[in-house]
Design a protein around this nucleic acid. Sequence first.
DNA 1: CTCCTGCTTTGAGTGCGCTCTAAGTCAAGC
DNA 2: GCTTGACTTAGAGCGCACTCAAAGCAGGAG
Lengths: 130, 130
Amino acid sequence: MKGDLSIREVAQATGLSAHTLRYYERIGLLSPVGRDAGGRRRFAARDLDWIAFLQRLRSMGMPIREMCEYAALRRDGDSTLAARRILLQKHFDRVRQEIALLEESANVLEAKIKLYGEMEEAASHFCHPE
Amino acid sequence: MKGDLSIREVAQATGLSAHTLRYYERIGLLSPVGRDAGGRRRFAARDLDWIAFLQRLRSMGMPIREMCEYAALRRDGDSTLAARRILLQKHFDRVRQEIALLEESANVLEAKIKLYGEMEEAASHFCHPE
DNA sequence: CTCCTGCTTTGAGTGCGCTCTAAGTCAAGC
DNA sequence: GCTTGACTTAGAGCGCACTCAAAGCAGGAG
């Protein structure tokens, strides 16, 4: 079927390894992927969107466990919309907090780096006055 | 000596566990801590600042390995100022990039959450028209 | 003196998220 | 038919950052 992808193609398209894709299916992040006559996986084109979303969640630090919860809810259909929204919202809040924390720390670090620069300046003047 | 702290006190002050403090010393994040007659650790008050800085670096996702490098440079004195600055700068850049990435993802997620909200709205109108 | 608590050490165990190995299957190319 | 190479599976292994266990000692309370 057109739009059908081998695990290799999906790996290349997503940047995940074939190992990881199998692992994701095993733990339920991906619903069981179709197989060809030889038992090889054939991904649907729209699986790519889902995988991209999974990558987005991972990049935001959502633990695999929670992503599995989300995936399970998704499989249960429209009746889980609210539950899914709540799950995402919870993580969204954590991410916003994490961003704020990182930003504060980054500012402190930046100040420290600047200080180091000044200390190096001073040291070089001390060694080579004028 | 005044300003001398037991491992328990340092744990409480920093939020790290006593286990973790011993671990940090073992791997060289903390230079060897003084002991009392009974072999028990006695932290100096200024160790707290260093530990706080370590926590800052950890919270920014610096790997322990790099923190050890930094700690080793620090022990080698003023001649390593530039090397330390470079190490921090490298991590600072990574953090800024990570923040940008998180922010972008958070925005995408926010949009998705909003969409979920609208879908729930629409569904409830469908079930209870007018 | 005995008991208890809190520390000491070395080294093993844990949870996470992959990552890889081993052994086997299948389809294509020579 | 045989080889090659990409795939399959179940399950083991890895790197990180802790976290805990076991065995033992030091000092204080009773």
